[in-house]
Design a protein around this nucleic acid. Structure first.
Lengths: 200, 200, 200, 200
DNA sequence: TCCTAAACGAGACGGTACGTCTCGTCTTTCA
DNA sequence: TGAAAGACGAGACGTACCGTCTCGTTTAGGA
């Protein structure tokens, strides 16, 4: 009945490793992060880290997932204004790239995802899905109110703003700011929005 | 008056290096590519490679640029159908990710771009810009014909399809096919297209 | 109370490295010896060798010290004949240059000693001192018996035979044989020997 | 009958190379001297240096030979005092090791001699022989006067002081000064000197 | 005065070893 | 039994010189 006394890694060890990982990421970025370095920073033996995480990418995903979850409190309920709701969702992503872990971590992490399907799956599950689900619920609420076309592809909608933000950040280096975010919202609404019904 | 016999790297050497690089990329991807390996494959001394390219990323960019330029013969002239023209442009990008170098190379390369501004600039200059310029010219032609809103941001238009394609390929792993491409075109046209004028 | 099972380098590793080093020295001499080659020969990783020895010279000194110590069983006790004792000491050095490691190793090693004081100190400590001390004890015994001048500089005595042997071997290429050794002994005795006392 | 138009290296080139070589030796020593560096310092192409000298050792020997010849004006004539003459000869060697090129160059050079008999021969011919011959003539003069044993081996005499000086300098690091030189002279004279004859 | 053969400068190149870095595995000790 | 400690094999890194080579370009003597 009782939980096992210890289940896998000891909480204190895990905590130390996560702290060291986030520290190192903030310091030097994903590319410069090494397991060796995390071991040194955390005081945890390299062996131990290898026992619980199969790769640097997996470690980083585990370390940042709780941070991402708590820092971006995701869209709560549908508000009174479709455009405003969507802008808020987009700005969260924009913010992440402007001054948070996200920009630092993503480029390198993405490269590793391409090489390891399991880690890619973990990334989607731990980082991508929670956010998308919240947004999907929001969009569904607006769909239910008749303000978004019933046949609209809600995944596509999200790709339409997340994709360009990633792309500018990682590839073109063009500015990613609220103005850009709002332009993306305009484009999306032109595609999927319906006018406010008169009878509703 | 005659040109110097050799200036900089010898053409035969460069060719061997590029061939080996493309070979290695096709074989094992960007992450697994090493300068050492390219040297071995090409029969060119490691020293020589380091003499002419400051990094793996720079080498890869130089190696793939001509391929990208020739393989994707870019949009020529505006055709008779705006939607068809745009679909063609989008399909070129989709194709690249489906079964060509692009998908193999990009994830890893993007990670390196984030760490070295000079290489990032080279990438934009050699790979990104040529393609974007051709598409921009195409869109301008349609703008001139009055079929694209005169105030439309043509860079945004391109971000709206390239971004999601990159994002799906590198992050979510969702399918990137012509259906997806066409959906992107629909979204873009909803935003920027004007109806065909009656007077022509 | 028990000693730790391993402390520092593992004995098996060290042994393999020493064997490969001596092998390589015998094969090609000091100048042609490379850490890389020793690693290959011994099956020990290059990294491991660099972990335990700071330089080629340090490695060679460690490798040859036990050989030199065991191969030249050094002067034991003073015998009955001063000249014979001294001749034996000199012949050991001559022998070393004639057909042993010494001649092969020394020239190159000496060059490196000149550039690194720490290594030079190690060489003196590990190779030179043991031999000199044995000879010094021998000479002191003869001094006590009144057959060597009480004010004789016993270090100078040793320099007077070791120096010319080194010099001929390394510089002039003149023959170094027992005849030469005996001539050196004659010169030394002319300088420091006293006639056998009548009362002895 | 006329001399060939140009035969061999141009004097200006040779001079530049020698100057750069001596410079580099004085700066960093023999071990750190590279052909590449001499080429850079001298403004002479690396190819040119390789055309005229087969190895670093050969180059250095050629560069230092005239310096050694001029700097140490060697024993002229026998003087009035055997001991003083011998001391002067010894001091020249001691001086060389104390504050001249000799100490800087010799250790490294000696290592290379051991590996290349031709260079070793050149070294003996260009550097060693001139000095030894002068000393040999000096000793022969004293032999003729009956102050050195007629059967004395004059080569051995020279080995008896040059050897220990080399040995101390290169191996033991013990001080090499005039006191040491004089002690060597004492030992030598004990071996080979005859008392001044009364009858002449 | 021009011709011609050499010496020369320039620098690309293949090659070897350097000494360092990080990886991921492993063995052993300790709590 | 799990963590700490750390030795180890593996292999790429980027650098330094090596010695060779192929090219023009001086540079002087001799026709």
């Amino acid at each position: 009945m009782a939980e096992p006394v210890t289940r896998g890694i000891r909480p204190a060890t895990e905590e130390a490793v996560f702290a060291a990982t986030l520290d190192a990421l903030a310091d030097r970025g994903y590319g410069a992060l090494t397991i060796e370095g995390v071991a040194a920073r955390s005081g945890v033996a390299k062996t131990t880290i290898y026992r619980w995480w199969p790769s640097k990418a997996a470690l980083v995903i585990d370390a940042i997932a709780p941070v991402f979850a708590s820092v971006n409190p995701v869209a709560p309920e549908a508000g009174s204004d479709l455009r405003a709701d969507l802008q808020a969702a987009v700005r969260r992503v924009v913010d992440g790239f402007q001054h948070r872990l996200e920009g630092i971590v993503l480029a390198g992490l993405v490269a590793d995802l391409a090489r390891d399907p399991e880690t890619a799956a973990a990334y989607r599950e731990r980082i991508v899905r929670p956010r998308r689900e919240a947004v999907t619920r929001l969009l569904e609420a607006w769909q239910a109110r008749g303000r978004i076309r019933p046949d609209a592809d809600l995944d596509l909608v999200q790709d339409l703003y997340v994709g360009p933000i990633y792309y500018r950040s990682l590839v073109t280096g063009a500015p990613v700011d609220d103005g850009f975010g709002d332009a993306l919202v305009d484009a999306i609404l032109a595609h999927v929005a319906l006018p406010a019904g008169e009878g509703g």
